[in-house]
Computed example of a mutant assay.
Amino acid sequence: MLNKHYFEALDITLNDLMKTRLNFGYDKPFGGKVLVFRGDFRQILHVVPKCSRADIIESSINSSYLWNSCKVLKLTKNMRLQNSASSSTNEETREFAEWILQVGDGTVNTIDDAQTIIEISPYLLIEKSDGHILSLVSFAYPKMIANMKNHSFFEERANLAPTLESVEHVNNFMSSMIPGDEKKYLSFDTTCKSDEDKEIEGDWFTPEFLNEVKCSGIPNHKLNLKVGIPIMLLRNIDQSIGLCNRTRLIVTDLTKKCHCNINSKR
């Protein structure tokens, strides 16, 4: 999903190399080398600042001269259907996968005036209630307290939310449901002194300001943890034992200054 200029620059570079060293393949895409591109055009396109939608589409690889030399390969077997031994679950997963593809292709209930009404299956909907977060948690994590010691229970489930604020609300609610004492951990909040030749004023970035920054990929300044709570590792620690980005973990012990004794589960 990168800009087409990346691939065109690589094509020119490989052509020059093959022409200079082997005098072969310079008239073929990428100097005759086989390249595999992985991606899904149903995902969001890359960002082109201050450009229109047409300009963004024009910058994608399928608008490049290289696209005519590409062969599109599609997956034909849903591997998720092999994860469950239940035939009813497999059938439900298959129907959901087909419905998602139809939504992405725009073939669901198409109307001539370019407007579409998509009907969502009842089993995917959460009934209206006063406690919408409770309904969401109960739907994704049924009998959560009874399954606290079952690591696969958290491994196979996850909640998705559109904003970080919603993520924090759901996390705080689920944490309140887990029994036990809660401990608060704060990040190191001392800023580095800016160099004198820098144009940015270091006084603007006070610890109070930095502690309020919340963005994807960076943990909050304050973490409230309990024993048994599931967490996710954001940075590589030791890949040899499976501690890499997005590894799911279960907290088994909390100390005064740090938390340790963590069992990892991919």
Rank of each mutant, 00 (worst) to 15 (best):
L2Y: 05
K4W: 05
H5D: 11
H5Q: 11
D11H: 13
D11F: 07
I12S: 14
D16K: 14
T20I: 09
R21C: 01
N23F: 05
G25P: 04
K28E: 13
K28W: 01
P29R: 04
V34Q: 07
L35R: 03
F37P: 01
G39T: 09
G39F: 11
Q43Y: 01
Q43I: 01
V47S: 09
V47F: 15
P49F: 08
S52C: 06
S52A: 06
S52E: 07
A54T: 11
A54I: 08
I57A: 07
E58K: 03
S59T: 10
Y65S: 04
Y65V: 03
L66R: 03
W67N: 06
W67Y: 07
C70F: 07
L73F: 14
M79F: 12
R80N: 05
L81D: 08
N83D: 11
S84V: 09
S86T: 06
S87Y: 01
S88Y: 04
E91A: 13
T93H: 08
R94C: 05
A97V: 14
A97P: 00
L101P: 00
Q102S: 14
Q102D: 15
V103M: 10
G104H: 10
D105N: 15
D105H: 10
T110V: 13
T110S: 01
I111N: 12
A114C: 10
I117W: 02
I117C: 02
I118C: 02
I118Q: 03
S121D: 14
S121E: 14
P122I: 08
Y123S: 11
L124H: 14
D130M: 00
H132W: 12
S135A: 15
S138L: 00
F139S: 15
Y141C: 03
P142D: 10
M148Y: 04
H151K: 06
S152I: 02
S152D: 11
F154T: 04
E155K: 15
E156S: 14
E156W: 03
A158L: 12
N159D: 05
L160A: 07
L160W: 05
T163A: 02
E165G: 08
E165I: 04
E168Q: 15
H169R: 15
N171K: 09
S175M: 08
S176V: 00
S176L: 07
E182Y: 01
Y185H: 03
D189V: 02
T191F: 11
S194W: 09
K198P: 00
K198F: 04
E199W: 02
E199N: 01
E201D: 15
G202L: 13
T206C: 02
E208S: 13
E208W: 00
F209D: 00
N211D: 10
N211F: 01
E212C: 11
V213H: 00
K214I: 12
I218H: 08
K222R: 09
K226G: 07
G228Y: 03
I229M: 15
I231T: 08
I231S: 01
D238Q: 12
C244Q: 13
R246I: 03
R248E: 06
L249F: 07
V251R: 00
C260K: 11
N263K: 15
K265E: 09
R266I: 12
